[in-house]
Every structure is written in C-alpha cells, then in structure tokens.
Design a protein around this nucleic acid. Structure first.
Length: 275
DNA sequence: CCCCAGGTCTCTG
DNA sequence: CAGAGACATGGG
C-alpha cells in the first residue's frame, strides 16, 4: 500500500487526460491496469492510496519519484496566461510511465478515432486475447503479449473493431517480436527511437510522440493533435498550420517540460472549454 | 445522410 | 515538399 500526497496527484485528471485507456471506476475509486498488473486508487483524506501487489511497479508507473511542484512552478514562471490557468487546473496531472509495447498498440488505435471508442477497442482486445486474472474480487485481463497479437489474423483483428488499423497491428506486431528491436528503441536516443517508431506502419509523427512520451518518458516531446492545433491557434495566436512545426514550436519553447505542459494544456482545453 | 474522432498513407502536381 | 482523398467504425 502506497500513500501519496494528493496535491500533485489528482486521480481523475491523471486518468482522464488521454494518456491511458485501461481504467475503470470501482468501489469509490479506480482500478488501473497495465500489462498484467492492476492497482486500486482512491482518496483518503489528503492522500492518494495505491493498493496493489506490486508497490515498486506502481510507484514507478505513477512517477512518484518526480517532484511535480517543480514542473508546476516552471509552468507558472513562463507567465503565459493560458499555460498558467491550465497548470492551475491540472497541477495534479502526472505523466505515467507506461509499458512501451502496450503504448505502441494503444496509440496505433488512436488515429482518427475518439477516446471512448479507443478505450472500448483496447478493452475488447484484452478480454479476447489477454491472460485473465483475479484481483479485487473481479476478473481482469492482461494486455495481450506481442506473440499473441502477432499470431492473429487480419479477420480476428478486424473483429475487434480496429477497422483499417488491423493492417497496422498485423505488420507492426511482427516487427515487435524482435526483442533486440524493442531494446534498441527503449535504450536509444530520441533520434534512434523516433526513426524506428516511424518505420512501423501506422505510426506517424503524432502517434510517435505519444509513444515516446507515455511509453518512454521522453518529456521533451509535445504530441500535437486536433486539440493542440486548435489551442495553438485559439490561445497562442499561432499562424503555423503544419502540426509538426507546431510541435517543434512548443518543444523549443518548453524544452524538457514539453510533455508535462502538453498534458496541462490538453487537459484544460478538453475539459474546461466547449468545442 | 451528414460530420467527426488524440492521423497516417498514398498519390499527384 | 505541400495538398487532397481515402480509410473502418460508431456516435451525435
């Protein structure tokens, strides 16, 4: 059991900001699943309680060793009104250290898709092809292994609702069977990692940045999607139209803080403004 | 029947 | 290199 001060750990905000898809409300809190592990999160007074059978894993997963007050204060120091209000509203958002391969498959699904449907598709993938296990009085499912996914047919993949992305799963899963390829990516510098991720079918700049940020904690990435593009024009008075250039603009501005600030901004844009 | 969703791929000029 | 369409699926 882990207890962590809730000032810089807001459960809902951390889970609902689009970085993770495998969580569900449960018993006054949330069950959060990663690979073949699960934890139960809830508030108790001024603390977040993290109940699991692997404290070490979830301590790392929730990035508990990082001092988020520094990130928050850094955001305020920019004196950019929209960043300030986003940070104030999202100071409890944490960048999770999620499983690399799980992130690759998860964000392959994300393109031209909406978050509720991404969530449902991933749940279906796990229920059908992930190892089941029991915890907290429930039957839960691990994320399928690469080997399992690599053995599925296009038809089986399409039956999950992957649509045209079934082909991306089919191709990428074969490449990811190579453990050396995965290690080279995880241990490589940004350039190597990026180049290898982009070699996977279905991984473009945006998905690549999400995998790098959420699956490898490369916080000098600024995933730029429809929301960020809109925010850039609405709230930063930007005049660039190329999403890659917009991403570069923010990375130059925010450096290693890019990923954290991106989540502050994304979270605020999605939750506190209507379309 | 339209449009859109945490985009990417492919083809064209 | 920039721009335009296509792409599966489900919800509004």
């Amino acid at each position: 059991m882990i207890k962590f001060d809730k000032e810089f750990f807001n459960i809902e905000d951390t889970l609902e900001c689009g970085q993770i898809f495998r969580f569900q409300k449960y018993n006054g809190g949330y069950l959060v699943t990663s690979t073949s592990k699960v934890c139960f999160l809830k508030y108790e007074k001024d603390k977040v309680l993290i109940d699991s059978s692997d404290d070490e894993y979830f301590s790392k997963f929730f990035d508990l060793d990082t001092d988020y007050s520094k990130i928050y204060n850094s955001a305020l120091s920019y004196n950019i009104p929209y960043l300030t209000i986003s940070a104030e509203n999202g100071k409890g958002v944490r960048i999770l250290r999620q499983d690399f391969v799980e992130m690759i498959f998860s964000f392959l699904i994300s393109q031209n898709n909406n978050i509720p449907r991404i969530k449902r598709t991933i749940e279906g993938l796990c229920e059908k092809f992930g190892q089941s296990f029991n915890a907290f009085g429930k039957t839960l499912f691990a994320f399928p292994t690469v080997e399992k996914i690599a053995n599925l047919s296009i038809e089986e993949l399409k039956a999950l609702g992957l649509g045209y992305r079934a082909n991306y799963f089919f191709d990428s899963s074969k490449k990811l069977l190579n453990q050396d390829f995965i290690l080279e990516m995880k241990n490589g510098n940004n350039s190597t990692l990026r180049q290898n991720l982009l070699s996977l079918k279905g991984v473009g700049q945006k998905v690549c940045d999400c995998i790098m940020l959420f699956g490898c904690h490369r916080t000098d990435r600024f995933p730029t999607d429809t929301w960020i593009e809109k925010l850039y024009h609405d709230n930063f008075n930007g005049n660039l139209s190329d999403r890659n250039k917009i991403s570069e603009y923010f990375v130059e501005l925010f450096g290693d803080m890019s990923g954290y600030f991106q989540q502050y901004l994304f979270h605020y844009k999605r939750n506190f403004e209507s379309k």
